Amino acid sequence: MSIVRVHNFSISLDGFGTGEGQSRDAHFGHAGDRLHEWMFATRWWSADGNAGVDDAFVQRHDPGIGAEIMGAGKFGHPGWEDEPDWKGAWGANPPFHTPVYVLTRHTRPSIEMEGGTTFHFLDASPAEALAVAREAAGGSDVRIGGGAKIIRAFLAEGLIDHMHVAVVPILLGRGVRLWDGLEGLERTYRIESTASPSGVTHITFARTGA
């Protein structure tokens, strides 16, 4: 059976998955690119990037994924719902290459992009959205792409089987936190950590019994 996965979700030392003040020009608010600079330095991103620990984790992002679920805040800046021409923050050829289900109260017709990505807009619960995404994935795995609120909601309902979180050595102080309301989460997962020379700590969560 397919599983539900999170890959390469970056948080700060104080647990924030995005900064405060998201806008069209600042997709991660005051955090800027600092949460993801470790990815940009890998061979996955650039042919002359490093091929070490960070690259080994980031390379697992795509294989075996048949569909993605993301939140409205990952799809775009606050207010994108009022812009009928907005097609996401990744240009004409987004990096997903699968059906992507955007959870939002402001639904709109699906948008077909280059490279195999089609954005669908659902007003649904996590379990309802997962059922739709699983059918579209055709037996492949479903990735929960973020942001922090969406991952938190799926964790709270016990719907995530495997999760990779990259803890980046910065302090943001404000924004959207990943762990709020998830006390005791460690009791339902096998947790391992791997340190990278970049300063990033990669933490993996494998649901017990999954």
Rank of each mutant, 00 (worst) to 15 (best):
V168M: 06
I3D: 11
P78I: 01
G17N: 00
S12P: 05
I144V: 03
S193A: 15
A136E: 05
E157W: 11
V100W: 05
F75K: 01
A41M: 15
A67S: 12
E83Y: 02
T194W: 00
E157N: 10
L171F: 15
D48V: 11
E20H: 08
I151E: 07
D141Y: 09
Y189S: 04
G116K: 04
A153H: 10
W90H: 09
R174N: 14
S125Y: 01
I144P: 03
G32E: 03
L185E: 07
A127F: 04
H162L: 14
V53P: 02
F16G: 08
G64Y: 06
T42P: 10
N50Q: 11
P109G: 01
H36Q: 15
F16M: 01
L35R: 05
Q59S: 14
G52D: 15
P84E: 08
L172D: 00
H120C: 08
K87D: 13
G116T: 09
I69C: 12
A131T: 15
A137W: 02
E128S: 13
H7V: 09
V142N: 04
H202R: 10
M70F: 03
R152V: 08
P99L: 01
A129M: 02
H120A: 11
G17F: 07
E192R: 11
D62A: 10
R134C: 00
G209L: 05
A133Y: 08
A26F: 06
V176P: 06
A206I: 12
I203M: 15
A210Y: 03
H106Q: 08
G49R: 01
V167Y: 04
L171P: 00
P197W: 01
A131S: 15
H77Q: 05
R207I: 13
S198W: 08
W80M: 05
H162S: 11
L103D: 00
H164D: 12
G71C: 14
G146L: 05
F96Y: 02
R134Y: 02
P99G: 09
A51C: 13
